[in-house]
Nucleic acid binder design. Structure first.
Lengths: 210, 210
DNA sequence: TAGATTGTTAATCGATTAACAATC
DNA sequence: TAGATTGTTAATCGATTAACAATC
Protein backbone atom coordinates (compact mmCIF):
# COMPACT_ATOMS: atom_id res chain seq x y z
CA UNK A 1 0.00 0.00 0.00
CA UNK A 2 2.79 2.40 -0.88
CA UNK A 3 1.00 3.94 -3.83
CA UNK A 4 -1.49 6.51 -2.74
CA UNK A 5 -5.13 5.69 -2.26
CA UNK A 6 -7.67 6.97 -4.78
CA UNK A 7 -9.91 9.65 -3.35
CA UNK A 8 -13.13 7.59 -3.68
CA UNK A 9 -11.47 4.77 -1.78
CA UNK A 10 -10.45 7.10 1.04
CA UNK A 11 -14.03 8.23 1.35
CA UNK A 12 -15.45 4.73 1.38
CA UNK A 13 -12.85 3.57 3.86
CA UNK A 14 -13.83 6.39 6.20
CA UNK A 15 -17.44 5.31 6.04
CA UNK A 16 -16.33 1.74 6.51
CA UNK A 17 -14.31 2.72 9.54
CA UNK A 18 -17.32 4.26 11.20
CA UNK A 19 -19.51 1.32 10.25
CA UNK A 20 -17.02 -1.04 11.84
CA UNK A 21 -17.06 1.00 15.04
CA UNK A 22 -20.78 0.50 15.27
CA UNK A 23 -20.63 -3.15 14.35
CA UNK A 24 -17.92 -3.69 16.93
CA UNK A 25 -20.08 -2.17 19.64
CA UNK A 26 -22.83 -4.57 18.74
CA UNK A 27 -20.42 -7.35 19.57
CA UNK A 28 -20.06 -8.77 16.12
CA UNK A 29 -16.73 -10.48 15.51
CA UNK A 30 -16.61 -11.00 11.76
CA UNK A 31 -18.09 -9.43 8.66
CA UNK A 32 -17.88 -10.33 5.01
CA UNK A 33 -17.72 -8.04 2.01
CA UNK A 34 -21.34 -8.73 1.13
CA UNK A 35 -22.58 -7.48 4.46
CA UNK A 36 -20.41 -4.38 4.40
CA UNK A 37 -21.46 -3.59 0.86
CA UNK A 38 -25.11 -3.82 1.78
CA UNK A 39 -24.67 -1.51 4.76
CA UNK A 40 -22.87 1.14 2.74
CA UNK A 41 -24.90 0.82 -0.44
CA UNK A 42 -21.92 -0.08 -2.58
CA UNK A 43 -20.80 -3.17 -4.49
CA UNK A 44 -19.01 -5.94 -2.61
CA UNK A 45 -16.17 -5.82 -5.10
CA UNK A 46 -15.53 -2.20 -4.18
CA UNK A 47 -15.27 -3.13 -0.54
CA UNK A 48 -12.78 -5.89 -1.20
CA UNK A 49 -10.75 -3.74 -3.53
CA UNK A 50 -10.65 -0.85 -1.07
CA UNK A 51 -9.61 -3.07 1.77
CA UNK A 52 -6.97 -4.83 -0.26
CA UNK A 53 -5.47 -1.44 -1.09
CA UNK A 54 -4.46 -1.35 2.55
CA UNK A 55 -2.60 -4.60 2.07
CA UNK A 56 -4.86 -6.24 4.58
CA UNK A 57 -5.97 -9.82 4.33
CA UNK A 58 -9.37 -11.23 4.95
CA UNK A 59 -10.05 -14.83 5.57
CA UNK A 60 -11.41 -16.98 2.82
CA UNK A 61 -13.81 -18.67 5.16
CA UNK A 62 -15.37 -16.11 7.44
CA UNK A 63 -14.50 -12.85 5.73
CA UNK A 64 -12.89 -10.19 7.89
CA UNK A 65 -12.42 -10.00 11.63
CA UNK A 66 -13.98 -6.76 12.77
CA UNK A 67 -11.41 -5.57 15.21
CA UNK A 68 -8.28 -6.13 13.12
CA UNK A 69 -9.95 -4.75 10.03
CA UNK A 70 -10.94 -1.61 11.86
CA UNK A 71 -7.43 -1.27 13.15
CA UNK A 72 -5.97 -1.75 9.69
CA UNK A 73 -8.11 1.05 8.30
CA UNK A 74 -7.24 3.20 11.28
CA UNK A 75 -3.57 2.86 10.52
CA UNK A 76 -3.96 2.79 6.77
CA UNK A 77 -5.71 6.15 6.80
CA UNK A 78 -3.30 7.67 9.27
CA UNK A 79 -5.94 8.20 11.91
CA UNK A 80 -3.57 7.42 14.77
CA UNK A 81 -2.55 11.04 14.84
CA UNK A 82 -5.48 12.91 16.35
CA UNK A 83 -5.79 16.16 14.42
CA UNK A 84 -6.32 19.47 16.14
CA UNK A 85 -8.88 21.77 14.60
CA UNK A 86 -10.17 25.30 15.02
CA UNK A 87 -13.43 26.94 14.05
CA UNK A 88 -13.36 30.38 12.54
CA UNK A 89 -16.66 32.23 12.73
CA UNK A 90 -18.84 31.65 15.75
CA UNK A 91 -22.23 32.60 14.43
CA UNK A 92 -25.11 30.22 14.67
CA UNK A 93 -23.48 27.45 12.66
CA UNK A 94 -19.99 27.78 14.08
CA UNK A 95 -21.30 27.91 17.61
CA UNK A 96 -23.36 24.80 17.13
CA UNK A 97 -20.36 22.89 15.83
CA UNK A 98 -18.40 23.97 18.89
CA UNK A 99 -20.97 22.24 20.99
CA UNK A 100 -21.40 19.01 19.07
CA UNK A 101 -17.95 17.85 20.06
CA UNK A 102 -19.08 14.72 21.86
CA UNK A 103 -19.82 13.05 18.54
CA UNK A 104 -16.24 13.19 17.47
CA UNK A 105 -14.91 10.24 19.35
CA UNK A 106 -11.44 11.64 19.26
CA UNK A 107 -10.43 11.43 15.62
CA UNK A 108 -10.44 15.20 15.40
CA UNK A 109 -10.37 17.59 18.35
CA UNK A 110 -11.62 21.13 18.20
CA UNK A 111 -9.25 23.12 20.38
CA UNK A 112 -9.97 26.72 19.47
CA UNK A 113 -12.65 29.07 18.19
CA UNK A 114 -12.17 32.45 16.56
CA UNK A 115 -14.44 35.36 15.83
CA UNK A 116 -13.89 38.94 14.86
CA UNK A 117 -16.54 40.16 17.26
CA UNK A 118 -14.74 40.48 20.57
CA UNK A 119 -17.79 41.43 22.58
CA UNK A 120 -19.46 38.26 21.47
CA UNK A 121 -16.49 36.18 22.52
CA UNK A 122 -16.82 37.53 26.03
CA UNK A 123 -20.44 36.56 26.19
CA UNK A 124 -20.02 33.02 24.87
CA UNK A 125 -19.71 30.01 27.05
CA UNK A 126 -17.55 27.24 25.72
CA UNK A 127 -15.36 24.41 26.87
CA UNK A 128 -13.01 25.39 24.05
CA UNK A 129 -10.72 28.43 24.20
CA UNK A 130 -11.99 31.37 22.21
CA UNK A 131 -9.84 34.04 20.60
CA UNK A 132 -10.27 37.18 18.52
CA UNK A 133 -9.70 36.60 14.81
CA UNK A 134 -6.52 38.64 14.65
CA UNK A 135 -4.82 35.97 16.73
CA UNK A 136 -5.34 33.23 14.17
CA UNK A 137 -1.76 33.12 13.01
CA UNK A 138 -0.32 33.10 16.50
CA UNK A 139 -2.66 30.49 17.94
CA UNK A 140 -2.69 28.13 14.96
CA UNK A 141 1.08 28.02 15.06
CA UNK A 142 1.51 27.76 18.79
CA UNK A 143 -1.13 25.11 19.27
CA UNK A 144 -0.21 23.06 16.21
CA UNK A 145 -3.64 23.27 14.68
CA UNK A 146 -3.86 21.33 11.42
CA UNK A 147 -7.49 21.77 10.42
CA UNK A 148 -9.49 24.96 9.99
CA UNK A 149 -13.27 24.97 9.84
CA UNK A 150 -14.58 28.08 8.14
CA UNK A 151 -18.06 29.25 9.13
CA UNK A 152 -17.79 32.97 8.51
CA UNK A 153 -19.94 35.09 6.18
CA UNK A 154 -19.12 34.76 2.48
CA UNK A 155 -17.25 38.00 2.21
CA UNK A 156 -14.78 37.07 4.93
CA UNK A 157 -14.13 33.54 3.71
CA UNK A 158 -11.16 33.99 1.39
CA UNK A 159 -9.44 36.31 3.85
CA UNK A 160 -9.78 33.78 6.63
CA UNK A 161 -8.54 30.99 4.37
CA UNK A 162 -5.50 33.06 3.47
CA UNK A 163 -4.71 33.64 7.12
CA UNK A 164 -5.08 29.98 7.98
CA UNK A 165 -2.92 28.89 5.07
CA UNK A 166 -0.38 31.53 6.00
CA UNK A 167 -0.28 30.04 9.48
CA UNK A 168 0.51 26.62 8.05
CA UNK A 169 -2.84 24.89 8.30
CA UNK A 170 -3.03 21.57 6.43
CA UNK A 171 -6.73 21.15 5.73
CA UNK A 172 -9.79 23.35 5.45
CA UNK A 173 -13.43 22.43 5.81
CA UNK A 174 -15.24 25.23 4.07
CA UNK A 175 -18.88 25.80 4.93
CA UNK A 176 -19.25 28.91 2.82
CA UNK A 177 -20.38 28.93 -0.81
CA UNK A 178 -17.13 30.65 -1.78
CA UNK A 179 -14.77 28.66 -3.97
CA UNK A 180 -11.57 29.15 -2.02
CA UNK A 181 -8.34 29.82 -3.85
CA UNK A 182 -5.09 28.48 -2.62
CA UNK A 183 -1.80 28.78 -4.42
CA UNK A 184 -0.58 26.24 -1.97
CA UNK A 185 -1.26 22.69 -3.05
CA UNK A 186 -0.13 21.45 0.33
CA UNK A 187 -3.52 22.43 1.66
CA UNK A 188 -6.49 20.10 1.26
CA UNK A 189 -9.80 21.87 0.94
CA UNK A 190 -13.20 20.26 1.28
CA UNK A 191 -16.43 22.09 0.71
CA UNK A 192 -19.62 21.55 2.62
CA UNK A 193 -22.03 24.00 1.15
CA UNK A 194 -25.60 23.54 2.15
CA UNK A 195 -27.11 25.72 -0.52
CA UNK A 196 -25.14 24.20 -3.35
CA UNK A 197 -26.24 20.80 -2.17
CA UNK A 198 -29.86 21.89 -2.17
CA UNK A 199 -29.47 23.32 -5.64
CA UNK A 200 -27.82 20.16 -6.95
CA UNK A 201 -30.53 18.05 -5.38
CA UNK A 202 -33.16 20.24 -6.94
CA UNK A 203 -31.55 19.92 -10.37
CA UNK A 204 -31.13 16.18 -10.00
CA UNK A 205 -34.82 15.83 -9.22
CA UNK A 206 -35.90 17.88 -12.22
CA UNK A 207 -33.57 16.00 -14.55
CA UNK A 208 -34.69 12.63 -13.33
CA UNK A 209 -38.20 13.46 -14.39
CA UNK A 210 -37.39 14.23 -17.98
CA UNK B 1 -29.21 17.77 -24.82
CA UNK B 2 -31.61 14.90 -24.68
CA UNK B 3 -29.16 12.42 -23.15
CA UNK B 4 -28.91 12.93 -19.45
CA UNK B 5 -26.21 15.03 -17.86
CA UNK B 6 -23.37 13.31 -16.01
CA UNK B 7 -23.50 13.90 -12.28
CA UNK B 8 -20.20 15.86 -12.16
CA UNK B 9 -21.50 18.17 -14.86
CA UNK B 10 -24.69 18.83 -12.93
CA UNK B 11 -22.63 19.80 -9.91
CA UNK B 12 -20.35 22.10 -11.84
CA UNK B 13 -23.27 23.68 -13.65
CA UNK B 14 -24.90 24.45 -10.32
CA UNK B 15 -21.76 26.19 -9.14
CA UNK B 16 -21.56 27.96 -12.45
CA UNK B 17 -25.12 29.11 -12.11
CA UNK B 18 -24.40 30.74 -8.79
CA UNK B 19 -21.21 32.26 -10.07
CA UNK B 20 -23.09 33.79 -12.97
CA UNK B 21 -25.63 35.29 -10.59
CA UNK B 22 -22.85 37.08 -8.79
CA UNK B 23 -21.12 38.14 -11.98
CA UNK B 24 -24.39 39.45 -13.32
CA UNK B 25 -24.91 41.61 -10.26
CA UNK B 26 -21.50 43.10 -10.79
CA UNK B 27 -22.75 44.28 -14.15
CA UNK B 28 -20.51 42.15 -16.29
CA UNK B 29 -22.02 41.33 -19.67
CA UNK B 30 -19.79 38.60 -21.04
CA UNK B 31 -17.47 35.92 -19.71
CA UNK B 32 -15.20 33.44 -21.40
CA UNK B 33 -14.44 29.89 -20.43
CA UNK B 34 -11.01 30.83 -19.09
CA UNK B 35 -12.47 33.27 -16.61
CA UNK B 36 -15.15 30.88 -15.45
CA UNK B 37 -12.63 28.09 -15.06
CA UNK B 38 -10.39 30.23 -12.94
CA UNK B 39 -13.24 31.24 -10.67
CA UNK B 40 -14.37 27.68 -10.12
CA UNK B 41 -10.95 26.08 -9.98
CA UNK B 42 -11.59 23.77 -12.90
CA UNK B 43 -10.22 23.45 -16.42
CA UNK B 44 -11.60 25.65 -19.16
CA UNK B 45 -12.31 22.61 -21.27
CA UNK B 46 -14.63 21.27 -18.58
CA UNK B 47 -16.56 24.49 -18.58
CA UNK B 48 -17.00 24.46 -22.33
CA UNK B 49 -17.96 20.82 -22.37
CA UNK B 50 -20.48 21.25 -19.57
CA UNK B 51 -22.07 24.23 -21.22
CA UNK B 52 -22.21 22.56 -24.60
CA UNK B 53 -24.06 19.65 -22.99
CA UNK B 54 -26.92 22.10 -22.62
CA UNK B 55 -26.84 22.66 -26.35
CA UNK B 56 -26.03 26.28 -25.77
CA UNK B 57 -23.77 28.31 -27.99
CA UNK B 58 -21.14 30.78 -27.01
CA UNK B 59 -19.69 33.32 -29.27
CA UNK B 60 -16.34 32.71 -30.84
CA UNK B 61 -15.30 36.28 -30.24
CA UNK B 62 -16.36 37.33 -26.79
CA UNK B 63 -17.19 34.02 -25.14
CA UNK B 64 -20.58 33.81 -23.46
CA UNK B 65 -23.14 36.46 -22.67
CA UNK B 66 -23.81 36.30 -18.96
CA UNK B 67 -27.54 36.67 -18.92
CA UNK B 68 -28.45 34.18 -21.65
CA UNK B 69 -25.94 31.67 -20.35
CA UNK B 70 -27.39 31.88 -16.86
CA UNK B 71 -30.83 31.47 -18.31
CA UNK B 72 -29.75 28.46 -20.35
CA UNK B 73 -28.39 26.73 -17.26
CA UNK B 74 -31.50 27.66 -15.35
CA UNK B 75 -33.65 25.91 -17.90
CA UNK B 76 -31.20 23.13 -18.62
CA UNK B 77 -31.14 22.11 -14.98
CA UNK B 78 -34.87 22.41 -14.58
CA UNK B 79 -34.61 25.17 -12.01
CA UNK B 80 -37.72 26.94 -13.29
CA UNK B 81 -39.82 24.83 -11.02
CA UNK B 82 -39.19 26.13 -7.50
CA UNK B 83 -39.04 23.10 -5.25
CA UNK B 84 -40.83 22.97 -1.93
CA UNK B 85 -38.89 21.53 0.98
CA UNK B 86 -39.42 20.56 4.59
CA UNK B 87 -37.04 20.14 7.48
CA UNK B 88 -37.49 17.20 9.81
CA UNK B 89 -35.82 17.61 13.17
CA UNK B 90 -35.73 21.08 14.69
CA UNK B 91 -32.80 20.77 17.04
CA UNK B 92 -29.95 23.20 16.88
CA UNK B 93 -29.02 22.41 13.29
CA UNK B 94 -32.54 22.11 11.90
CA UNK B 95 -33.62 25.29 13.60
CA UNK B 96 -30.70 27.23 12.22
CA UNK B 97 -31.49 26.07 8.70
CA UNK B 98 -35.07 27.21 9.16
CA UNK B 99 -33.76 30.67 9.77
CA UNK B 100 -31.17 30.94 7.00
CA UNK B 101 -33.88 31.06 4.37
CA UNK B 102 -32.94 34.46 2.98
CA UNK B 103 -29.91 32.96 1.29
CA UNK B 104 -31.99 30.75 -0.87
CA UNK B 105 -32.97 33.21 -3.53
CA UNK B 106 -35.99 31.22 -4.43
CA UNK B 107 -34.60 28.08 -6.05
CA UNK B 108 -35.81 26.03 -3.12
CA UNK B 109 -38.41 27.10 -0.57
CA UNK B 110 -38.66 25.67 2.89
CA UNK B 111 -42.37 25.52 3.63
CA UNK B 112 -42.63 23.25 6.67
CA UNK B 113 -40.77 22.05 9.72
CA UNK B 114 -41.39 18.88 11.71
CA UNK B 115 -40.32 17.68 15.12
CA UNK B 116 -41.51 14.91 17.38
CA UNK B 117 -41.34 17.15 20.42
CA UNK B 118 -44.67 18.92 20.43
CA UNK B 119 -43.91 21.12 23.40
CA UNK B 120 -40.89 22.46 21.61
CA UNK B 121 -42.94 23.25 18.53
CA UNK B 122 -45.18 25.45 20.61
CA UNK B 123 -42.23 27.36 21.98
CA UNK B 124 -40.53 27.98 18.63
CA UNK B 125 -40.92 31.08 16.60
CA UNK B 126 -40.74 30.64 12.88
CA UNK B 127 -42.02 32.18 9.69
CA UNK B 128 -42.51 28.63 8.44
CA UNK B 129 -45.38 26.39 9.56
CA UNK B 130 -44.37 23.79 12.12
CA UNK B 131 -45.98 20.41 12.60
CA UNK B 132 -45.62 17.36 14.82
CA UNK B 133 -43.72 14.54 13.14
CA UNK B 134 -46.72 12.23 12.91
CA UNK B 135 -48.20 14.60 10.33
CA UNK B 136 -45.37 14.15 7.87
CA UNK B 137 -47.31 12.01 5.46
CA UNK B 138 -50.37 14.24 5.46
CA UNK B 139 -48.51 17.53 5.08
CA UNK B 140 -45.94 16.39 2.53
CA UNK B 141 -48.74 15.17 0.32
CA UNK B 142 -51.09 18.08 0.77
CA UNK B 143 -48.45 20.74 0.32
CA UNK B 144 -46.65 19.04 -2.56
CA UNK B 145 -43.32 18.95 -0.81
CA UNK B 146 -40.61 17.44 -3.00
CA UNK B 147 -37.50 17.74 -0.82
CA UNK B 148 -36.94 16.52 2.72
CA UNK B 149 -34.06 17.77 4.84
CA UNK B 150 -33.25 15.35 7.62
CA UNK B 151 -31.68 16.79 10.75
CA UNK B 152 -32.86 14.33 13.38
CA UNK B 153 -30.71 12.22 15.71
CA UNK B 154 -29.09 9.18 14.07
CA UNK B 155 -31.50 6.67 15.50
CA UNK B 156 -34.52 8.36 14.03
CA UNK B 157 -33.03 8.95 10.59
CA UNK B 158 -34.05 5.83 8.69
CA UNK B 159 -37.56 5.97 10.12
CA UNK B 160 -37.99 9.54 9.00
CA UNK B 161 -36.61 8.72 5.56
CA UNK B 162 -39.10 5.89 5.23
CA UNK B 163 -41.97 8.18 6.12
CA UNK B 164 -40.85 10.83 3.66
CA UNK B 165 -40.41 8.31 0.87
CA UNK B 166 -43.77 6.81 1.72
CA UNK B 167 -45.29 10.25 1.33
CA UNK B 168 -43.80 10.55 -2.15
CA UNK B 169 -40.85 12.83 -1.54
CA UNK B 170 -38.45 13.11 -4.49
CA UNK B 171 -35.18 14.10 -2.87
CA UNK B 172 -33.56 13.88 0.54
CA UNK B 173 -30.74 15.93 1.96
CA UNK B 174 -29.42 13.81 4.78
CA UNK B 175 -27.43 15.52 7.50
CA UNK B 176 -27.07 12.42 9.65
CA UNK B 177 -24.19 9.96 9.43
CA UNK B 178 -26.64 7.16 8.69
CA UNK B 179 -26.43 5.58 5.25
CA UNK B 180 -30.08 5.72 4.29
CA UNK B 181 -31.67 2.79 2.52
CA UNK B 182 -34.27 3.25 -0.09
CA UNK B 183 -35.77 0.52 -2.18
CA UNK B 184 -37.16 3.28 -4.27
CA UNK B 185 -34.76 4.48 -6.93
CA UNK B 186 -37.08 7.35 -7.72
CA UNK B 187 -35.69 9.10 -4.67
CA UNK B 188 -32.43 11.03 -4.92
CA UNK B 189 -30.44 11.09 -1.71
CA UNK B 190 -27.54 13.39 -0.97
CA UNK B 191 -25.50 13.19 2.18
CA UNK B 192 -24.02 16.12 4.03
CA UNK B 193 -22.30 14.58 6.97
CA UNK B 194 -20.08 16.90 8.89
CA UNK B 195 -18.25 14.23 10.82
CA UNK B 196 -17.53 12.08 7.83
CA UNK B 197 -16.16 15.11 6.07
CA UNK B 198 -13.88 15.86 8.98
CA UNK B 199 -12.69 12.29 9.04
CA UNK B 200 -12.04 12.24 5.31
CA UNK B 201 -10.17 15.52 5.58
CA UNK B 202 -8.14 14.13 8.42
CA UNK B 203 -7.25 11.03 6.43
CA UNK B 204 -6.43 13.06 3.34
CA UNK B 205 -4.01 15.17 5.36
CA UNK B 206 -2.26 12.18 6.85
CA UNK B 207 -1.96 10.45 3.50
CA UNK B 208 -0.60 13.51 1.77
CA UNK B 209 2.30 13.53 4.19
CA UNK B 210 3.46 10.02 3.48
C1' DT C 1 -14.34 -32.79 -0.06
C1' DA C 2 -17.79 -29.08 -1.01
C1' DG C 3 -18.80 -24.46 -0.10
C1' DA C 4 -17.87 -19.85 0.93
C1' DT C 5 -15.09 -16.07 0.55
C1' DT C 6 -11.22 -13.33 -0.58
C1' DG C 7 -7.85 -10.89 -3.67
C1' DT C 8 -6.88 -9.68 -8.24
C1' DT C 9 -7.08 -9.77 -13.19
C1' DA C 10 -8.94 -7.92 -17.13
C1' DA C 11 -12.83 -5.77 -19.24
C1' DT C 12 -15.85 -2.02 -19.03
C1' DC C 13 -17.38 2.18 -18.20
C1' DG C 14 -17.26 7.07 -17.75
C1' DA C 15 -15.03 11.43 -17.00
C1' DT C 16 -11.26 14.63 -18.07
C1' DT C 17 -8.44 16.99 -21.08
C1' DA C 18 -5.24 18.16 -24.93
C1' DA C 19 -5.55 19.58 -29.32
C1' DC C 20 -7.51 21.69 -33.12
C1' DA C 21 -10.82 22.84 -36.88
C1' DA C 22 -14.51 26.06 -37.26
C1' DT C 23 -16.08 30.57 -36.50
C1' DC C 24 -16.64 35.38 -35.91
C1' DT D 1 -6.77 39.61 -42.26
C1' DA D 2 -5.05 38.19 -37.60
C1' DG D 3 -6.50 36.91 -33.18
C1' DA D 4 -9.45 35.04 -29.87
C1' DT D 5 -12.63 31.83 -28.58
C1' DT D 6 -15.83 28.12 -28.91
C1' DG D 7 -17.42 23.26 -29.67
C1' DT D 8 -15.94 18.73 -30.36
C1' DT D 9 -12.92 15.00 -31.52
C1' DA D 10 -9.97 11.64 -29.93
C1' DA D 11 -6.67 10.30 -26.52
C1' DT D 12 -5.92 9.65 -21.79
C1' DC D 13 -6.79 8.73 -17.43
C1' DG D 14 -8.89 6.57 -13.57
C1' DA D 15 -12.54 4.14 -11.26
C1' DT D 16 -15.87 0.31 -11.18
C1' DT D 17 -17.07 -4.25 -11.67
C1' DA D 18 -17.65 -8.99 -13.51
C1' DA D 19 -15.44 -13.05 -13.27
C1' DC D 20 -12.59 -16.38 -11.42
C1' DA D 21 -8.41 -18.69 -9.50
C1' DA D 22 -6.62 -19.30 -4.96
C1' DT D 23 -7.57 -20.38 -0.34
C1' DC D 24 -9.25 -22.15 3.86
Amino acid sequence: MREKLPEPSIQRLCLLYRLLSRVEKEGRLTVNSGFLAEQLNVKATSIRRDISLLGEFGNTIAGYEVQPLKQAIFKGLGLESVKRACIVGLGRLGASILNYQGFLMGDVMVVAGFDSNINMLEMMESAVSLYPAYQIDEIVRSRNIEIGIITVPMKAAQGVADKLIQAGIKGILNFTPVVLKSDNSRVTIRNLDFFSELLILSAAISLKER
